[in-house]
Simulated assay, not measured.
Amino acid sequence: MIQVSVCGPREAAPQDVANAREIGRLLGERGAAVICGGYGGVMEAAAEGASSVGGLVVGVLSGPTRGGATPYLTVAIPTGMGEARNAVIALAGDAVIVVGGSWGTLSELALARRNGTVVVQLGGWRVVDEKGRPVEGVRYADSPVEALWLTGLFG
């Protein structure tokens, strides 16, 4: 089974929430497992989209209990790790799709790239080098459909 981590902020812009919901739905329709942080915002929207079509959704929670998790998860994994759980999310996916931007989201993007995992970004922050050029290795999408295509997992 293909596993795709969908990362993004809890406090998300309406367009990022809509994009995440559509990404989750598209992943669910293709039989991919969606891995996310399991709470609100982009995480909840991706989970809702995938679960709406019967998809498998795994939430890797920062807290020691399942309290506060979105109801759209198939499986909730409490870690008690705080933001260190971002490493689990980033490394669990065959690809990582980043929707929107926040410091926690940026950490997941960096951890995935360091691991050699394909990272696709839709909206949010753009990471650039010292000359202002986009950092190599992050693929930029303009739509949820393009985000899935850029992962290279869905031929």
Rank of each mutant, 00 (worst) to 15 (best):
S107P: 03
G8E: 12
L109N: 03
G82R: 02
I23L: 07
W103A: 14
G49N: 09
W103Y: 15
E11W: 04
L122Q: 12
V120F: 06
R66L: 14
A84E: 15
R85T: 09
G104R: 10
E136Y: 10
G41P: 00
S5A: 15
A141D: 12
L91Y: 11
R114T: 10
G38D: 08
D129T: 05
V98C: 14
L56D: 13
G40K: 14
L27H: 09
G37W: 12
F154P: 04
G59K: 01
E44I: 00
A18P: 03
I23P: 08
G8P: 04
V145N: 11
G123F: 07
M1T: 14
A13W: 14
G38C: 06
I97M: 12
L122Y: 12
E83P: 13
G116W: 11
P144M: 03
R21D: 13
L61E: 05
V88P: 01
W125T: 06
E130L: 09
S102Y: 13
W149V: 10
D142H: 10
M1H: 11
D129C: 00
Y140Q: 12
A46N: 01
A92E: 00
K131H: 12
P78W: 10
S143Q: 11
V128W: 05
G54A: 01
M81N: 03
G80C: 03
G93F: 10
D142N: 05
L109E: 12
I2S: 02
G152D: 13
M1A: 09
M1P: 07
G55Y: 07
G82A: 00
A110H: 01
L111C: 05
A45Y: 08
A47D: 09
M1I: 07
V128Q: 03
G38S: 09
V96M: 04
R113D: 04
G49H: 13
S52N: 07
S52A: 13
V34R: 02
T65Q: 02
R126T: 14
E136N: 02
S102L: 07
R10Y: 07
P9R: 14
A90P: 03
G28W: 10
G38N: 08
E83L: 13
V88G: 08
L153Q: 04
R25F: 06
A110W: 05
V127R: 02
I23S: 11
G28A: 03
V88E: 11
G137Y: 10
A13P: 04
S62P: 13
G155H: 14
I89H: 08
G37L: 12
L26T: 11
R25Q: 10
G116S: 09
A92K: 00
G123V: 03
N115I: 00
E108C: 06
I23G: 03
V118M: 13
G101C: 05
E44A: 15
